[in-house]
Design a protein around this nucleic acid. Sequence first.
DNA 1: GATACCATTTTGGGATACCAAACTGGTATC
DNA 2: GATACCAGTTTGGTATCCCAAAATGGTATC
Lengths: 221, 221
Amino acid sequence: MSQMQNVERQLREMILGLEIGPGEKLTERWIEGRFGASRTPVRAALLRLETEGLVGRDGRGWTVSPINLAELEQIAVYREAVEVAAVRLTCLHAERSAIDVIEAMLDSCDDNTPREEWHRVGMDFHIELARLSGNEFLFRAVRDAMTRLSRARWLEVRDEAALGRAWAEHRAILAAARLGDADEAARLLSAHIVGSRDRLVTSLANDRRGLRARGFAVVAA
Amino acid sequence: MSQMQNVERQLREMILGLEIGPGEKLTERWIEGRFGASRTPVRAALLRLETEGLVGRDGRGWTVSPINLAELEQIAVYREAVEVAAVRLTCLHAERSAIDVIEAMLDSCDDNTPREEWHRVGMDFHIELARLSGNEFLFRAVRDAMTRLSRARWLEVRDEAALGRAWAEHRAILAAARLGDADEAARLLSAHIVGSRDRLVTSLANDRRGLRARGFAVVAA
DNA sequence: GATACCATTTTGGGATACCAAACTGGTATC
DNA sequence: GATACCAGTTTGGTATCCCAAAATGGTATC
């Protein structure tokens, strides 16, 4: 593993894991020291994370991208477009076994599963479903969108009921896909994404004060 | 203008303008000498062009991405998803004047207009239409997709009739958008993209031998 | 106490030096 | 003639150095 990939991966994990808060300043020299690499791989990593939207330039200097509620809403619209297109393709040439693999992912979560794992599986559901479309561009679009949403979803306060509802919606989507019913799968997925967005934005807007108190920059819609 | 942006812009122009052929090898040192910059900005430029899909890593070393017919077909599906979503949004809050600006772009091309300009306007039509959606992510998706398609479209052999047909389709889409008829605009745009893709892939597949003779790597579907 | 100003430090952008791995071309061997 | 092998060269990855611009902090002035 090259240093560049190493720095990139570790820095991404720190940002997504909120070990570095949204809105925090980053200096290339701090990263250099933190990961024991020189500035060349550090700069390469920052350039890539910039295209992922996780860090941004703040005049001179780098900043961990703040949570931006307006952006979250726009991403949801984007997701809806690409995920619905992907699931429609999947329905056309649905591999029964491939869908079963995704269902098994959902099954792997139970009462003993740590919160972090639910979070990851919830994202992977959408990513893996998009992968089944066989279209590399739709897949990457979904994966990148989920990456951008990741921190916000992590901050969302979700009760057991909401989590259970999401899982039920996931299962309903898979059921429609298994039958090859593209219209139904599209309708369910679309509703799921819109619902998720509403809960997410509402939750963050309500908690905004508390989040800022924790040092997390949250930009209003 | 920083060196990095300079190198990036010039190198992108050379690749898109086919001054460096698809499939050609690139060395950081050649670029360094060609643009009179050191390796630091060269490296940054390559990293960004990599995310745009214009260059790729070939083991050790860099290669200008070949024209990939399978990829072109996948991009068309992706475009269809995002452009249709964008135009639907545009229809919801269509600014009459903004649509007129796009129509004026189309009008600016006549018999005396150089082929290169038709090419550029044909792409900008789609990009600007997506911008009107107001959704940054849909806009960027369309812009990036058009960038990836650019070289292939430039290589396409297009007769006057095909060009005229494309312009007529563009105008029809704008007319529907002006009326706020989202379903009609979506239907027309979708058909336009599918038609474009078919003509493009057919043309390149037919010319494949000749293109390879010119030193352009063209990967079959 | 607020503010304008200047010296110092910090920082990102760029240039260069170094290295190990990969590639190249030629040669010896069969 | 084909092939295995080796020295020399090229090249991407990394570290380090330099610089100008921007941030910082202290100080003098009002």
